[in-house]
Nucleic acid binder design. Structure first.
Lengths: 219, 219
DNA sequence: ATAACCATCAAACGTATGTTTTAAACATAC
DNA sequence: GTATGTTTAAAACATACGTTTGATGGTTAT
């Protein structure tokens, strides 16, 4: 073949297995046998397992950050100087994620699950890589969230953004299982888009909650 | 010695290392050398690494579920037939977690981090163990949450509880890292109690958000 | 005193991991 | 058609893992 697709097959298999099982729990042999390539191919093409992990993230994060950047440009153009509202920012964010071209119908939930894992699993090299490569679009999102919640102190905003990321990554990462449970329990089918549509008002309300750090009614 | 403290030393070391690094990333050799016991002691006293993981959870989850049960009894008694409000339920939950007797000042954050890991890391045996052992207090919490959000449809409530669990588990599972980032950025030190106190109003507001499934302003 | 029991220890076991090596097959350019 | 650089293949590498073994010492009960 003119150009081998070995690299892509490895990336596809690794992406799926990482999302299912986490990084440490996924061996190179699982990946290469799922991808139907030789074991040595990973180290040949990527150099190491850690570099493969980073490559998996780069493959979807790079186009996503470009899409997001353009969508934010669009949003700010429509707002003509006025800072975008929190709901607008959140909606552009979820829309960009959902609208990304995905390799299959599981793409969006794999995407989310990987983001959650990047935060959760203590992979020092990954955190460094993501901070170096994607600090700019991340910073832009943070600035927009800040503009959308001018009433919050920096500390309040920081924590509430963490809560927001948690709710999103967690829900999306297990959206398949959650959708299935709901289907069995109430006979209702839900799309990822609908989940996102439910998530946005939840997050917006949480981010903007009045916050007289509630005192217990306990005696 | 009359009674060896080997078991407790193993549990203490394991608890701390699991919380720091996750389960797969923590080897028995790390644990036994931190605990200053022989490598074989783990398999002798617990049988296997998985059984040790479960024992670590049981040691704090069993007393916690008893404390929580009594606190819910208390709450319902104070409410005299009226269903407790959502804020009351959430507050009793976090209060019970915070008020638990802990072995040291890191105890509460280790507790939280482990709970987050239990959700996040795909340890099949752990999930089964927790479901079997603690289904009753978990079910009670779910019933109270339902009573506290009577205005929600079953579907809305289902998803919003998932969002809530996600925000909590995710934040708690990376609370150390998040606290550290905040310390470096703004020079502010945060206790786990403060995080919990910030989380409650966020969750309460999100759970009770008005929900006219927001339509994008996008063209 | 002696037997039974339990906890500890160093050492080894078998397995699985990430990585490297060697040779063969391949496509492409001359 | 042969040479060249690239990709695959199979095997072996060293290392780390969870677990098991068999000997040893100490405590308890008979």
């Amino acid at each position: 073949m003119a150009q081998s697709d070995t690299v892509d097959r490895i990336l596809n298999a690794a992406e799926e297995l990482f999302a299912e099982r986490g990084f440490s729990e996924t061996s190179l042999r699982m990946i290469t046998s799922k991808a139907n390539v030789n074991l040595a191919a990973v180290n040949y093409h990527f150099g190491s397992k850690n570099a493969l992990i980073q490559a998996v993230f780069a493959r979807f994060l790079t186009p996503f950050s470009e899409t997001l950047d353009k969508a934010f440009d669009d949003l700010e153009r429509r707002c003509k100087g006025e800072p975008p509202t929190l709901q607008q920012t959140l909606w552009v964010l979820t829309e960009s994620a959902v609208r990304m071209p995905h390799r299959n119908e599981k793409g969006i939930s794999i995407f989310m699950r990987l983001l959650g894992l990047a935060y959760t699993q203590s992979q020092g090299h990954l955190r460094k890589f993501l901070e170096q490569e994607y600090s700019e679009p991340f910073g832009r999102l943070m600035r927009l969230l800040k503009a959308g919640t001018p009433q919050l102190s920096a500390v309040d905003r920081y924590w509430r953004i963490q809560f927001m990321l948690g709710a999103t990554a967690f829900t999306m990462s297990s959206s398949d299982a959650l959708r299935e449970i709901l289907e069995n329990k109430l006979g209702i089918d839900t799309t990822v888009q609908e989940i996102a549509a439910r998530l946005v008002p939840f997050l917006a309300a949480g981010l903007q909650a009045d916050d007289p750090i509630s005192v217990p009614k306990t005696a």
